[in-house]
Nucleic acid binder design. Structure first.
Lengths: 241, 241
DNA sequence: ACAATAGTGTCTCTCAGACAGTATCGT
DNA sequence: ACGATACTGTCTGAGAGACACTATTGT
């Protein structure tokens, strides 16, 4: 249970002090690649190494609030602009060599990110290719490689049965733009015709706006916005050709 | 990021002290009902109320270790006997009226639970009907009603695409026993014939042992054990008749 | 006309759900 | 023989993937 020691009856050493942080897996798509925000650490340990953005939870704020605040400090994005959800927590002793730290990882997905500005505890911030980061163990400080892997896997899984892919798109988007999101995040190529039929046929997923895009050399595409359904029936299955 | 303050460059008030606990959602099936372990609190706040079992994470143990230890203290089950996985973390200020506590919820599934023995901080322990607990807001202390709801929903969702249902079964089990798990956890009734064809046809899910059960009034059923597949293709879909 | 992209129709295969029918036990 | 439970076969409809075909733009 959650209680600290009462006046009597408990182990007297039952309340070891922890630091609690939130770390952010901020994903976006740039140049048809999945990218994550990483910051350069300005201090030891891992000074000069890249890490996920994050920071301490304040004594008076909830965990999602802390994640939103850190996201805003790091990217300038507000909670209304992004999808933000908790992924998992990590607290192995020694994951930070100086003290006992438990961190709660949050996944943030955004369509377009403004200029990155380094936070108060980092000297630089940039976008890094996710596949490259995951393919190189030790590319990130602490256990952030695992945090990133878990966050990316969460995103990949949720594309199937939730409208999460639209979080990578602007408010109005075409079916082709949505398909590109699935292709980039999953690392596959999808049949444009079957994909179109599937997503437009899933009730509540896409809402036509009536508008269409001006295009260069091709039929204009209808613009959609995301519907209010939170679960896709049928799902957009991952094991397509 | 995860680091405490370096000698310079950080806010000096950046390390508020937190208590960190693990709470357990221990589920099992008794009398064709989904049941959860709850303990009676011996001290304020919520003295006399029921809560999920749990306790403080020690300074030198990892989060899964703490969950295993608490599970053993509360139920006598070892990690080898149960499925144990992290669900989510909760840290709203004020969720414990005395101090700032962040808790990490773990889901534990077991086939048969031995006699429950109350932990050091609880005066009694029992199994409670999950539907009844969820239908009565405030049935559990703190925010444990939400923890339970999130844990149960995790279990329900994972029955579809993972062999998790076998965690509710003894090492060797019949198809009918497995079906009963799905029916109880999902609260539906499933066609025995279609269910049989589905689970035996999903590669890697079930392994025949060659043995069969002695039965009372009916053809003996073949005994299976769980295979090594972690993901079911095709899944056992939830929206059956 | 032609290239390019958007969108539709059609075929086949797999799988889910309904349910008839067969197999193997205890009584 | 009969009831009970285990298991198999067959039908139908929904959906996935392959891919031919039509629609609408710019050049």
């Amino acid at each position: 249970m959650d209680a600290p020691a009462p006046p009597t009856g408990y182990r007297p050493d039952a309340f070891p002090p922890f630091a609690v942080t939130v770390d952010l897996i901020v994903l976006t798509i740039q140049d048809d690649r999945l990218r994550a925000v990483v910051v350069e650490r300005g201090v030891d340990p891992y000074a000069g190494a890249w890490a996920l953005p994050g920071g301490f939870v304040r004594i008076d704020e909830d965990l999602p609030e802390a994640a939103s605040r850190e996201l805003a400090e790091e990217t300038g994005l507000t909670a209304a602009d992004v999808h933000l959800e908790q992924v998992a927590s990590y607290g192995r002793p020694g994951r930070d060599p100086r003290m006992r730290v438990v961190t709660i990882a949050y996944l943030a997905l955004a369509a377009h990110l403004p200029e990155l500005r380094p936070g108060t505890d980092a000297s630089a911030a940039r976008f890094a290719d996710v596949d490259e980061l995951l393919g190189r163990p030790g590319a990130l400080a602490f256990d952030h490689g695992r945090l990133l892997a878990d966050g990316v896997e969460r995103a990949r899984a949720k594309l199937e049965y939730s409208p999460l892919a639209t979080a990578f798109c602007p408010p109005e988007f075409t079916v082709a733009e949505l398909r590109r999101v699935y292709e980039v995040v999953w690392g596959v190529s999808l049949d444009p015709r079957n994909f179109h039929r599937k997503v437009t046929g899933t009730p509540g997923f896409l809402v036509p706006t009536g508008r269409s895009t001006a295009r260069q050399g091709g039929r204009p595409a209808a613009l959609f916005r995301v519907g209010d359904t939170q679960v896709l029936h049928p799902p957009i299955t991952r094991r397509d050709g």
